[in-house]
């Protein structure tokens, strides 16, 4: 464990909590893409199947349980509790455009052709594109509440910190997880234009982020 990975996990946790609290306190999921949240729940489910078979550390196990619980709680709030505030017509990204290539690629490119390994690879590839429906919804509605942009900021920052973690682990222990690194770089690239808007619009404007 190193400071970059720990900071990354904390950012990830903060992002998930920001979103969950926003939905719970505003009792509304307007402007939130339910599809992205479903994809994140699938990412955690397919990645943490080794929760009961592989024990890494108490931290690892606890964080996996927390991420699973919070992501399913978020999906529950969106599709069950506050479903009347869910504007599905704005959440129109075609998930098959993401799932088909990700499933295909995870069968082609993986470390071992075993169910657990293919599912792990699937979750890595899926995570890199899971935010697309949310970013698509923001471009479609042309705006995002500032709390949603804070959520996206921490979510994007988490994987950027993981890249620093991979650089650190490569130089200190020769560790290099090619699938995770390539996918993590792609994922972070998707956030770059958002980061630019976040810094120029939200942090200065202190208001809603309206796309040009």
């Amino acid at each position: 464990m190193n400071i970059f990975r720990l900071a990354g996990d904390v950012c990830h946790l903060v992002a998930i909590i920001i979103l969950l609290l926003k939905i719970w306190r505003s009792r509304s999921c307007a402007g939130i893409s339910g599809k992205s949240q479903v994809l994140f729940a699938i990412v955690f489910t397919t990645r943490y199947l080794d929760l009961f078979t592989v024990f890494i550390s108490p931290y690892n196990t606890i964080m996996k349980v927390v991420f699973l619980a919070l992501s399913y709680a978020t999906v529950y709030l969106i599709y069950m509790r506050f479903r009347n505030t869910f504007n599905s017509e704005n959440d129109s990204f075609r998930l098959e455009f993401l799932l088909v290539p990700v499933i295909g690629l995870s069968f082609l490119e993986n470390y071992a052709f075993t169910p657990l390994e293919i599912l792990w690879t699937f979750s890595i590839f899926l995570e890199s594109v899971a935010i697309m429906p949310q970013l698509f919804m923001i471009t479609k509605t042309g705006e995002a509440e500032s709390i949603t942009t804070h959520y996206l900021f921490f979510l994007g920052l988490y994987r950027a910190l993981y890249i620093a973690n991979w650089v650190w682990r490569y130089h200190t222990e020769g560790f290099f997880d090619q699938i995770a690194v390539v996918s993590g770089v792609v994922q972070t690239i998707f956030y770059i234009d958002f980061f630019y808007l976040y810094v120029t619009k939200v942090l200065r404007g202190r208001g809603k982020m309206t796309l040009p």
Binding site: R47, I56, N60, A112, Y162, F175, D177, I179
Partner: peptide
Amino acid sequence: TDEAANHDEL
């Protein structure tokens, strides 16, 4: 490859 052995990252 050893990465496949144990994915120790979240």
